[in-house]
């Protein structure tokens, strides 16, 4: 492929990060009434239907939109893996971890909203107990398979701090990625509590975990990826550590 075409594709894929953020925030966060989500563990099936699925008629559209935009995360993760591969000359275990984690996280960001869309669309036809079961099942998958994102963040973070020749991503971003990825372990408590900071809508398990993931990991790496793909070819080589510093 010609170099100019390759660079255009990289830039396009880099913008998938912001597209994911805007799309998911609008559809899942705002239209999907997930700021914060309903605390289904502490609600009866009838409450979940009356206060969430039955109350907001656009939830089906919101979740289908989320399912669409969720996979832009996977596209962005693929670009990240290719940048790591280009810096090393080949795919390493850490770049595979990042890629696998990004693919699985993107799938999750689409699959779970698809389940919630089904709940929204079928709410008038299905027993509230079944609605709550599917809703809860999807949230447990969404939260408690956190390891798929942890492995992406730890893989990327370790690559960042151990690869001393690259200057695409600063050390602090790598360490932050590792720390936040590991802090996701608190999500294991979510299914067992119906109130407090570790509940599904809790201060720690929702606002802090999602907030730090977004602002301290995703926004940071998004910024550095965008900055990198707009560098000249020589500057990119230097940032990737394939050329000596100027």
């Amino acid at each position: 492929m010609e170099e100019s075409a390759n660079r255009a594709i990289e830039r396009g894929l880099a913008w998938c990060g912001p597209v994911f953020v805007v799309g998911y925030f609008l559809f899942w966060g705002i239209l999907g009434q997930n700021m914060p989500p309903p605390n289904m563990i502490g609600m009866t099936p009838e409450q979940l239907v009356s206060e969430y699925y039955g109350k907001y008629p656009n939830l089906g559209i919101a979740m289908i939109g989320s399912a669409t935009f969720g996979l832009f995360y996977t596209v962005w993760s693929c670009l990240l893996a290719s940048l790591m591969r280009d810096a090393n000359g080949n795919m390493t275990a850490l770049s595979f971890l990042e890629l696998a984690g990004g693919i699985l996280t993107g799938w999750l960001l689409a699959f779970c909203p698809a389940m919630w869309a089904a709940c929204a669309i079928l709410v008038d036809q299905v027993d509230p107990g079944m609605i709550k079961m599917v809703h809860t099942f999807s949230w447990i998958i969404f939260d408690c398979t956190y390891m798929i994102t942890t492995m992406q963040m730890v893989g990327l973070g370790l690559w960042t701090v151990l690869n001393k020749r690259q200057t695409m991503f600063p050390d602090w971003a790598g360490w932050t990625s590792i720390a936040i990825g590991i802090s996701f372990v608190a999500l294991v408590i979510m299914p067992f509590v119906d109130e407090g900071p570790f509940a599904v809508d809790g201060l720690f398990n929702y606002w802090i975990i999602f907030g730090t993931w977004f602002f301290a990991f995703f926004a940071a790496y998004n910024y550095f990826v965008l900055k990198h793909v707009y560098r000249s070819p020589e500057e990119q080589e230097r940032a990737a550590g394939r050329l000596s510093p100027a």
Partner: peptide
Amino acid sequence: TNGIWTFVFIDMIVFSMIFIVFLSE
């Protein structure tokens, strides 16, 4: 090295957030 200081600093921030949430609860 700078790396370990950076790691410790980041880790301290994470634990500080946990402590603050604990105190608020």
